[in-house]
């Protein structure tokens, strides 16, 4: 990634950010979406000036001094992050592979708590304690060791479709100007395709007129409207929309999944 690409990516991430605070800390992942580990790395990537970032997940925390996409020092870590304990209070440097592995392991463990991830941002302590004299650990090295590509940010719609796979009989996604379907039951998919061809434009225009612009994520469910008593749900997010055919029994679970993916 070039420097200009990194700046453009960071500006886009800052612009799209929903800001939600809990107990005075900013929520960067609800534990499900955005995926916690990329969310932590994204937070480091968008911290340009030297700052202390403290990441929290449940009762665990990891505090680091960060500057210009580098981890300069590890300030504190909860006792359950055993890998990080020897590094507390030390400056970080990329020329020590075991340090890189330990920091990566602690971050992965924090991200696997299945808890909302929150961040506190503050000014770093005095230069002597903040690793300013060290080379620091570049974020790119952490991304490599974790096998994460920052350019491949998962779209929330794709995540929702995958995460809800057990809850619907057929799905039709409209993305990039085309409809793409997936279904175990072809007949149900055909019904969704007929909706897309015949009723979709009128419905979407009518709903937008009454409910407002569809740029923010939304979910609409109507039931029962298909053969066999199936319901249809519609999701709008990130300039895409998708139709789902599902049973009424799966309605509450589908809404629960939407809540998990689309809200912090």
């Amino acid at each position: 990634m070039t420097h200009d690409d990194a700046i453009a990516g960071n500006l886009a991430a800052l612009g799209a950010r929903q800001t939600v605070f809990r107990d005075g800390k900013r929520v960067i992942s609800n534990g499900c979406f955005p995926p916690p580990l990329p969310a932590i790395l994204q937070e480091i990537a968008t911290t340009v000036l030297q700052r202390q970032l403290c990441f929290h997940a449940g009762d665990s925390h990891l505090a680091l001094v960060v500057s210009e996409r580098r981890l300069m020092s590890l300030v504190s870590a909860s006792s359950d992050l055993a890998e990080a304990q020897p590094l507390i209070g030390t400056a970080l440097s990329h020329d020590q592979p075991e340090v890189l592995e330990a920091v990566a392991a602690a971050m992965v463990r924090l991200a696997q708590m299945e808890q909302p991830v929150l961040v506190e941002t503050g000014f770093a302590a005095a230069a002597a304690d903040s690793g300013l004299g060290s080379l620091g650990l570049p974020l790119t090295m952490l991304e490599e060791i974790m096998d994460l590509d920052p350019a491949e940010q998962e779209r929330p719609m794709a995540f929702f479709i995958d995460a809800s796979a057990e809850l619907y009989a057929a799905c039709l996604l409209h993305s990039g100007g085309a409809w793409m379907g997936a279904a175990a039951d072809q007949a149900v998919l055909t019904e969704l395709q007929q909706i897309a061809e015949v009723q979709w434009e009128r419905f979407q225009a009518s709903f937008a007129k009454h409910a407002g612009p569809l740029e923010t994520p939304r979910l609409v469910s109507l039931g029962p409207v298909l053969e066999g008593g199936l319901c249809v749900s519609v999701v709008w997010a990130g300039g895409e929309c998708a139709l789902f055919a599902h049973s009424r029994d799966d309605l509450a679970a589908l809404h629960g999944m939407w809540q998990r993916v689309f809200t912090l």
């Binding site: 929903q18 923010t216 979910l219 109507l222 309605l251």
Partner: peptide
């Protein structure tokens, strides 16, 4: 949407 008018509708946003 669909062949029958729905009995219920839900619309969720943040």
């Amino acid at each position: 949407l669909g062949a029958a008018a729905p009995d219920f509708a839900l619309a969720r946003e943040t």
